[in-house]
Every structure is written in structure tokens, then in C-alpha cells.
Lab assay of single mutants.
Amino acid sequence: LRLEVKLGQGCFGEVWMGTWNGTTRVAIKTLKPGTMSPEAFLQEAQVMKKLRHEKLVQLYAVVSEEPIYIVTEYMSKGSLLDFLKGETGKYLRLPQLVDMAAQIASGMAYVERMNYVHRDLRAANILVGENLVCKVADFGLARLIEDNEYTARQGAKFPIKWTAPEAALYGRFTIKSDVWSFGILLTELTTKGRVPYPGMVNREVLDQVERGYRMPCPPECPESLHDLMCQCWRKEPEERPTFEYLQAFL
């Protein structure tokens, strides 16, 4: 395994491009020591290896001592969030954005069929390849993070704006909380990567959403798509659509 080009840095580690087995181009995620327990990670990795779908980033291998390494397929255009905010983002029109959403829903419909939960679905965790191919990455890892700023769910590192209220408040993460996050991801797509709930801080978002506030229809977004977002944001988790439905609708 060779680490060649550093692609990015996040709160919990770095991402590199490299070569595996001398020939395969891969992405390598390294986790800061202390982010998660190697034992817990190894268990999760076994499950992650079983998830194989064309719209999920394929896991190739893991190094399960500290520092933990995760070796996955390489996606040339990086994260969907950076892609939307970058040069190419300007030229993306609604049909392409909807197609990308459908690809993500397709990957998540598979996660749904496998009775698995992602827990951290957002544009930053979707990767883009050639020809606007989108794949879901980092599934299941969020559960293992041991950082206090994260586990408190009120901490600075927790993605509260993407998280369903029952998950943020009571830790009830299910495929239905993933559906909520998918609704937020749809706003990221239609606004080219704007942060959700602009002008609001995490605490406010939690309070307002509890009181029934939902983001309005983004500019140039059809009402039918906003309606779909609002279905994803129904207060009762069981009233939210399935990913199978979302995939078919898109």
C-alpha cells in the first residue's frame, strides 16, 4: 500500500490517493489515533465489506491497528460538496442534479434492503467520479466515533443540521433518520452546496425544527421536489418515504 497524494483533511483524519497491490488506484482514509476503537472498527469493517453495490464506494481493505487505515475505490472528482461548490458546479442544471440524487437514493435503497443504517448521509460523504457518477461513502463509521465533541451530539463536530430530530435528541438512528438526511442533501444539491438552514446555528436549528420549522423551497427548485424534501422531514419517522420510493420518484 503506497500513500501518494494527500487529498484532504477532516476533523478525524486525512484522505490520500495511493496504490494498492502495486496496480490498483485507491483512496486511503487514515484516522487520528483515539477516534475509534480498533476492535469496534474491525467489526464494522466486516459488515462494510459485505455491502456491495454500484452506488456505494467499495471497501477494499482495512488496517485495524492505530493509525487505522481504510482502503476504498478511488473517485476522481472528490466529495459531492466540493464538486457542487467548484468550477463544474456552476454548469450543473436541475436534470443532472436530480440524476445525482437518484443515484444516491439507489445506493441508499440497497442499504435499506440490507437493514443497515448510514448515520451520516450528506454531500460531504458522497463521492463523485467521471460522468457525474455518484456513490455513497463512509457508511456506518459515524457510530464508532468516540470523540466527546461528537458523541455528545451537541458538540461542534456533530452534523446536527443533517440529523433527524429523534436521532439528534435521543440517539434513535434508523434508515428513517437517513431519509431525513437525504432530504437535507437534496437542498445541498439544489443550492450547489450551500450550508443548510443558512444564518442559523446548530442550537437554533434543533429548537426550530422541533417546533415544526422546515426549510423553504430553494430558488429555481420545482415545488414537486420541495414537496419530496418535506416528506423526508415528516416528524414521525414511519411517515417518511422509503429510499425505494425516493429512487422511483426521482
Rank of each mutant, 00 (worst) to 15 (best):
K6D: 13
G8M: 02
G8L: 00
Q9E: 15
F12G: 02
E14P: 01
V15C: 05
W16E: 15
W16T: 15
T19Q: 13
N21I: 14
R25S: 11
V26Y: 08
K29V: 01
T30N: 08
T35K: 15
T35P: 11
S37V: 04
S37K: 04
L42A: 04
L42T: 03
L42I: 07
E44V: 00
E44A: 01
A45S: 06
Q46M: 09
V47L: 06
V47A: 06
M48P: 03
K49D: 07
K50R: 10
K50V: 13
H53I: 03
E54S: 11
Q58A: 09
Q58P: 11
V62C: 14
V62E: 10
I70G: 01
I70S: 01
V71I: 08
M75G: 05
M75P: 00
K77H: 08
K77R: 13
S79E: 03
S79T: 05
L80H: 02
L81T: 14
D82T: 08
D82E: 10
K85E: 12
G86D: 05
R93V: 06
P95I: 06
P95T: 08
M108C: 13
Y110L: 05
V111C: 05
N115R: 14
Y116P: 00
D120S: 00
D120N: 02
R122D: 01
V128C: 07
V136L: 11
A137Y: 01
A142T: 06
E146C: 09
E149A: 13
E149K: 05
E149H: 08
Y150G: 01
A152T: 04
A152K: 03
A152Q: 04
G155L: 03
G155M: 03
A156W: 03
K157S: 04
F158K: 01
K161F: 01
W162F: 03
T163W: 00
T163C: 01
T163R: 01
E166L: 02
E166H: 05
Y170H: 07
Y170D: 08
G171D: 02
F173A: 04
F173L: 04
K176R: 12
K176S: 14
D178N: 00
D178V: 02
D178K: 00
S181M: 14
S181V: 01
F182S: 02
L185I: 05
L186A: 08
T187M: 11
L189P: 00
T191C: 07
T191D: 07
V195G: 14
Y197L: 01
P198N: 05
P198E: 07
G199V: 07
M200H: 07
V201R: 08
N202C: 04
R203I: 07
Q208F: 15
V209E: 03
V209S: 07
E210L: 06
R211M: 12
Y213F: 09
R214A: 05
P216L: 08
C217L: 12
P219V: 11
P219A: 12
E220P: 06
E220R: 11
E223G: 11
L225R: 00
H226D: 10
C230R: 13
Q231M: 11
C232N: 12
R234Y: 11
E236G: 11
P237F: 14
E238D: 13
E239G: 13
T242W: 15
F243D: 03
E244A: 07
Y245A: 09
Y245N: 07
L246E: 04
